[in-house]
C-alpha cells in the first residue's frame, strides 16, 4: 500500500507543475457548461419545470456536473494504450506493482490537485446557495453521499478506460473506441442533460447501465434528488459493474500479455 501512496504523491507533484493548464481546463469547462445553461434558460421561459427539475435545479445540476467532470476524469485509456503500442509497457512489467493499481495511483494523483482547487470553490458555492436561501434539497448528508459516489464513479471510469486500453494488445489504435465511450458516457451519463429529461424508455434502459454512475448519480445525491433510501440499490448496481470491469480487464490482460512483444511502432 505504501508504494502506491508514494506513487500518488509523485504524480500529484507532477500535476502541480501544470497549474496553468488546470486553470485553463476549468475555464474551458465553465464555458461549455455556461453555453448549455443559457440554452436551458431560454427553454424554461414559458415553463416552470421539466422532469422534476426547475430552472434553479437545472442550473445547480450543471454547476455540480462541472465539479464531477473534473473529479471523475481520467485519461487511462490513452496512457496505457500508448505504453502498449510503443512497447514501453515492459518497464511497468518489471516493477513490483500492479499496472492497474499504478494507473489508479497516477490518475488519483493528478485528480487530487484539481480537487484541491475546486473543492474550496464549491464550498463557497454551496454556502452561497444556503445563505441566499435558494429553494433546493441540498443537504450536508447529500453532499457527502454525492462525494462518495463521485469517488467511486472515478474508480469506475478508470476501470472502464483500463479495460478499453487493454484492447491495444490487439489493435493499432484504441483512441476511436475511447472517443466513442466518451460520447456515449457524456450523453447517457447525464453530462449533456439530466437523465430525467430523456424519454422514459431510454431512462429505463439506462438505469441498468454503468454510465449514470459517472456523472448523474453523484449529482442526484448532491442535489438531494437521491437520498439514503436509494443508496443500497445504487451501490449494489455500482459494485456489480465494478466487479464486471475488474473481471473482464483481468481476462483480457491475461490473454493480451501473452501476445505482447514490446516491439513498439
Amino acid at each position: 500500500m505504501g508504494k502506491y501512496l508514494a506513487l500518488v504523491k509523485n504524480f500529484f507533484s507532477s500535476a502541480i507543475i501544470k497549474q496553468a493548464d488546470i486553470f485553463g481546463n476549468i475555464l474551458i469547462n465553465i464555458i461549455q457548461i455556461w453555453a448549455v445553461v443559457l440554452i436551458w434558460q431560454t427553454v424554461y421561459s414559458p415553463r416552470l419545470s421539466f422532469g422534476g427539475f426547475t430552472l434553479t435545479d437545472t442550473i445547480l445540476y450543471y454547476v455540480v456536473i462541472l465539479l464531477i467532470t473534473f473529479a471523475t476524469y481520467t485519461n487511462t485509456a490513452d496512457y496505457i494504450s500508448q505504453n502498449i503500442k510503443m512497447g514501453t509497457l515492459s518497464q511497468w512489467l518489471l516493477r513490483p506493482t500492479s499496472i492497474l493499481l499504478t494507473e489508479l495511483a497516477r490518475s488519483l494523483g493528478e485528480q487530487l490537485y484539481k480537487l484541491l482547487i475546486l473543492v474550496p470553490i464549491y464550498i463557497i458555492v454551496f454556502l452561497t446557495v444556503y445563505f441566499l436561501r435558494i429553494k433546493t434539497n441540498i443537504s450536508i448528508l447529500g453532499i457527502v453521499l454525492g462525494g462518495f459516489f463521485m469517488i467511486v464513479g472515478f474508480l469506475l471510469n478508470c476501470l472502464f478506460e483500463y479495460t478499453l486500453s487493454i484492447l491495444a494488445f490487439w489493435m493499432d489504435e484504441v483512441w476511436s473506441i475511447k472517443h466513442f465511450k466518451e460520447v456515449v458516457t457524456d450523453l447517457l451519463g447525464g453530462k449533456r442533460a439530466p437523465l430525467a429529461f430523456f424519454p422514459v424508455i431510454i431512462q429505463n434502459i439506462n438505469k441498468f447501465l454503468p454510465f449514470q454512475f459517472i456523472y448523474f448519480i453523484p449529482a442526484e445525491y448532491m442535489l438531494g434528488k437521491h437520498t439514503v433510501r436509494n443508496f443500497v440499490g445504487d451501490m449494489s448496481l455500482l459494485l456489480l459493474w465494478l466487479m464486471f470491469f475488474i473481471a473482464v480487464s483481468k481476462i483480457l490482460y491475461d490473454q493480451g500479455i501473452r501476445k505482447y512483444g514490446a516491439f513498439g511502432n
Partner: peptide
C-alpha cells in the same frame, strides 16, 4: 466514425431539448 458519433450525440442533445419544448427562442 468518431466524428459522426460526435455529430449524432450533438443532435441527440437537441432532440432531448425538443422532447421538452416546441421552440428555442
Amino acid at each position: 466514425l468518431v466524428e459522426i458519433f460526435y455529430q449524432v450525440a450533438f443532435l441527440a442533445f437537441f432532440a432531448v431539448i425538443f422532447f421538452q419544448t416546441k421552440s428555442i427562442a
